[in-house]
């Protein structure tokens, strides 16, 4: 059974669906990345998962059961925006967390804060954005929680501390715990996440194992000797999900069967047929904005 199940979640604001029939499952012992443009509905999803917002319909299950008060001990949450009390010191936040959660390990929180370079005596209002993130991350990872919901857990952090947060996430997965995190830094998701979901306008537009998405999704490119060419129906192959045609160059986004489609393109008379790999950023852009994606892939290929 999956540690986290989101089932047909919908959150309406008046006539507008912030989250629209969204489902995903996070297995135990895994880091799961949630990607999406600004306003896609990621933060609303996190809030519905925690009962901070009431879903219009659908449900969220932890180990198959709906959220009950006792579940909160098992879930640690890092919100996108600081929820620290401005007038309180970091040490006071540790004390407050200790009183609220019986499994919280204050010594571990202090150890993490030292690693992040945040002084306990500082008041929250004196902390930079990155330091606030570090405090919330340290409090969350010292909770001994089995489920970590992290909404932009590296916001404002420098590259060294960003990597440190990723290592903490990997450690949790290695212990059998489950991490769901969102980030605009696709490179981080690409490194640490086993699976990803891409949200756009509240809907799930892409889901899968990062490694499988990369193995299946390729660009097949071919150059025709003159402008009078036909694709012999190749573009209608169900595995071709997007086609860009300039005067003589054809670029096909395929989902599986890249080598076969490359051979067909060559038989149709194309020369210089090649199969281009896509990284997660390319795959993400194709899912939410195909036009931007093609420009991006082409620019990258031309410069390399």
């Amino acid at each position: 059974m999956s540690a986290i199940q989101i089932l047909n979640l919908r959150k309406m604001y008046g006539p507008l669906a912030a989250v629209d029939d969204f489902s995903l499952e996070v297995p135990a012992g895994s880091v799961y990345g949630l990607l999406g443009p600004n306003g896609a509905g990621k933060t609303t999803t996190f809030k519905c998962m925690l009962g901070l917002l009431r879903p219009t319909s659908g449900e969220v299950l932890y180990d198959g059961k709906p959220l009950v008060p006792q579940t909160f001990e098992r879930i640690a949450y890092v919100p996108e925006r600081s929820v620290l009390y401005e007038w309180m010191t970091v040490a006071e936040h540790i004390e407050m967390t200790r009183r609220a959660f019986s499994r919280f390990d204050p010594a571990r929180a202090r150890e993490l804060l030292v690693q992040f370079g945040v002084e306990e005596r500082r008041r929250a209002r004196a902390l930079s954005k990155g330091m606030r993130t570090a405090v919330m991350v340290a409090l969350a990872f010292a909770r001994n929680a089995e489920i970590l919901l992290l909404d932009e857990p590296t916001g404002g952090l420098d590259p060294v501390n960003q990597r440190h947060v990723l290592s903490l996430m990997i450690n949790e997965a290695a212990k059998g715990n489950s991490v769901l995190f969102s980030s605009h830094q696709i490179g981080q998701v690409e490194r640490a996440a086993e699976r990803i979901a891409v949200m756009d306008h509240g809907r799930l537009v892409l889901e899968g194992l990062v490694d499988d998405l990369k193995a299946d999704r390729k660009i097949v490119e071919g150059v025709f000797p003159d402008v009078s060419y036909t694709l012999d129906g190749i573009a209608n192959d169900p595995r071709v999900t997007h086609a860009d045609r300039t005067e003589r160059i054809v670029r096909l986004l395929v989902n599986g069967g890249a080598d076969e489609i490359a051979s067909r393109l060559a038989r149709a008379g194309a020369t210089g047929v090649r199969v281009l790999d896509l990284n997660l950023e390319d795959i993400f852009l194709y899912a939410v904005s195909p036009e931007t994606a093609t420009a991006d892939v082409v620019a990258k290929e031309s410069s390399s």
Partner: peptide, 17 residues
Amino acid sequence: VKQLAIDLTVNPNTVAR
């Protein structure tokens, strides 16, 4: 698997695969 996942900062299931 666990150690290599931590060393490379990649998901343990990816190393296991």
